[in-house]
Design a protein around this nucleic acid. Structure first.
Length: 597
RNA sequence: GCCGACGUAGCUCAGUGGUUAGAGCGCUCGCCUGUCGAGCGAGAUGUCGAGGGUUCGAUUCCCUUCGCCGGCGCCA
């Protein structure tokens, strides 16, 4: 090493020692006769002092330098309690400029906010900033912790292909042309789902992988086209085993990285309970607003809007104090979400009298009983949604979150974890006009019905429940999984209900079905959204903060400029324009000798 | 695909239908021996995202377009 110590680790005990440091000029305070420089390396910052003025004068921000000097206690009164190294400083005898830095496109300074585009274009500079560097370091530690927990439990870390064929998740695939077979394409995996199930058939019993996944869908703050899962699968387990493992991982992560001791087992809630009480399959339990089902309360109402399959309400405490403009704002908010509006009633703070546009349409009895039925007090506002149960609950659930935000009810210092279990197996598949044309799998078609439904899910597909579970943290789904179907007869019945013919099943995942002919063990697993987990641990709002080189909107990488057009030669060689011999209308059959499902 | 916001100096942002478009930070130069987001003085830096239109005159108003951010759709 060209240095003897790390800058951030020098302490009073080093006083008197001669040290050689290497790092970057973080800040220069030039007093003429004496110059102070904050020298930064990966470990932190230390103040170095130049008495000979000329060489220090030439230094600029982010020059990479090597210095040799003597560690000394700072003169009394000049200590800096803000810095871990604040008791000491290094007086320089020898300076070597390892490399110079051009003027910076933006300051490497925690106090200055810089636009994301500029930061990503010069991400290597952005990552010199303390907060950004910490997020990346934290992620490394999170991955190490996961490996420690899983390694101690005899899990095998196994890599799976990234050049593969399309797997049955619902997103668009990224495709890769194949030079050796013009006209044929690989797909990048949306997850290692099928491979990890094959590894169970292979007797690996306990698999995990920190796996890159690819989905060609639109962006969000918490979504990237390539993202990472901590992917896990186990044989001979029940749902409770997976949940216990998930809790162990989360406990280890939050214990070390957030200094938060979570008491396991985490609370569990069924999917239906979550929807009924919170209008979300990933409720944030840091605030205790709940939805009220008013369907029976309003049965027989004259008000057309409330003559619906479901009428529900959510209360905004103190919401009656909102201005007309604020109440109108809720209408815009609801319309932006595709709802027609958000009906509301405000309860007079003095008299408790119900007022607002909706109140006129309600009977005397309904107005009188409303506060009780909705769980509201004088001075509150009550928001309503009416229509189909699912969409109304979702609207109220979104309103619940928005109320918490606007009313400042979210305690950011808290962590709320829970499992949402008993997810439905199926939901109606609809055409463009919203007419039901069949059923589609909520999770994926290999998810096992639970014990109660395994023999009769066909009798009421909309009610059938799965051994599927999501782990939720502060209103974010951070992981999810299921027990898989390992019985051929059950799998056949599920395909049949989903309207997937034997031929089609063979086309899409014949290789898995083949494998399942050879004694597949009962198995199940879970996948954590690793970017999201790290984002929460890092306390940031965007997964971009925990990805070293994230993409911006539209899949553009501001640093490399990818994606780029390709040359005519590249096109030709890649076989992008190869014409298939016959038009391909569906995925090509998977051909395998002996596939006799 | 849809909705909303934004785009002015290297960075963060202010501003205006009318003379030469500003601030802070950064940058360059100078001064300064105890600073720590050092201080003081001087200086340089602009396709006001792009194109078109209205106007005597547009960075400002209108239209289109591009970029970016957030949300909806989409993403099991």
């Amino acid at each position: 090493m060209i240095r003897t110590h790390q800058a951030g680790q020098l302490r009073a005990e080093h006083a008197g020692q001669t040290v050689t440091l290497a790092g970057w000029v973080a800040r220069r305070r030039d007093h003429g006769g004496v110059t102070f420089i904050d020298l930064r390396d990966g470990s932190g910052v230390v103040q170095i002092v130049f008495r000979s003025t000329d060489e220090a004068h030439a230094l600029r921000n982010e020059f990479c330098v090597k210095v040799t000097g003597t560690v000394g206690k700072r003169p009394e009164g000049n200590e800096n309690p803000e810095l871990p190294t604040g008791e000491i400083e290094v007086t320089v005898n020898e300076l070597e400029v390892l490399s110079e830095s051009a003027p910076l496109p933006f300051p490497i300074d925690e106090h200055v906010t810089v636009g994301e585009e500029a930061r990503l274009r010069h991400r290597y500079l952005d990552l010199r900033r303390d907060g950004q560097a910490k997020a990346i370091r934290l992620r490394s530690r999170a991955s190490a912790i996961a490996r420690e927990v899983l390694g101690a439990r005899d899990f095998l870390e196994i890599e799976t292909p990234t050049l593969t064929r399309s797997t049955p998740e619902g997103a668009r695939d990224f495709l890769v042309p194949v030079r050796l077979q013009p006209g044929s394409w690989y797909a990048l995996p949306q997850s290692p789902q099928l491979f990890k199930q094959l590894l169970m058939v292979a007797g690996m019993e306990r698999y995990y992988q920190i796996a890159r996944c690819y989905r060609d869908e639109d962006f969000r703050a918490d979504r990237q086209p390539e993202f990472t899962q901590l992917d896990i699968e186990m044989s001979f387990v029940t749902q409770d085993d997976i949940i216990e493992l998930g809790e162990a991982i989360v406990k280890a992560l939050w214990g070390e990285l957030a200094s938060f001791d979570i008491s396991a087992p985490f609370p569990r809630m069924t999917y239906h309970e979550a929807m009924d009480r919170y209008g979300s399959d990933k409720p944030d339990l840091r605030y205790d607003i709940e939805l009220r089902d008013l369907t029976s309360f309003f049965a027989g109402t004259e008000f057309r809007v409330f003559q619906a399959e479901y009428v529900g309400a959510v209360v905004m405490q103190g919401g009656a104090g909102q201005s007309r403009k604020e109440l109108d704002g809720w209408q815009d908010w609801a319309k932006a979400r595709g709802a027609r509006g958000l009906a509301y009633v405000v309860l007079d703070a003095e008299t408790g009298e119900a007022r607002g546009p909706v109140a006129k349409n309600l009977s005397e009895a309904h107005l009188k009983g409303l506060a009780d039925a909705a769980g509201a007090q004088p001075g509150d506002a009550v928001f309503f949604a009416a229509g189909s149960k699912r969409s109304s609950q979702e609207l109220l659930g979104a309103a619940r979150i928005e109320i918490a935000k606007r009313s400042n009810l979210i305690d950011e210092s808290q962590w709320s974890f829970l499992w949402v279990v008993d997810a439905p197996m199926f939901e109606p598949a609809t055409d463009d006009k919203g007419k039901q044309i069949g059923w589609t799998a909520v999770h994926h078609p290999f998810t096992s019905p639970n014990e109660e439904w395994v023999d009769r899910f066909e009798s009421a597909p909309d009610e059938a429940l799965a051994y599927a579970y999501d782990i939720v943290c502060n209103g974010n789904e951070i992981g999810g999984g299921s027990i898989r179907i390992h019985r051929g007869d059950v799998q056949k019945r599920v395909f049949s209900l989903l309207g997937i013919s034997e031929t089609e099943a063979k086309d899409k995942f014949g290789f898995l079905l083949d494998a399942f002919q050879y004694g597949p063990p009962p198995h199940g697993g879970i996948a954590f959204g690793w970017d999201r987990v790290c984002m929460l641990l890092a306390g940031t709002d965007s997964i971009r903060d925990v990805i070293a080189f994230p993409k911006s909107g539209g899949g553009f990488d501001p640093l490399t400029g990818a994606p780029t057009p390709i040359t005519a030669d590249q096109r030709k060689e890649a076989g992008v324009d190869a014409r298939p011999k016959a038009p391909v209308t569906s995925i090509q059959p998977f051909s395998s000798p002996g596939a006799t499902h």
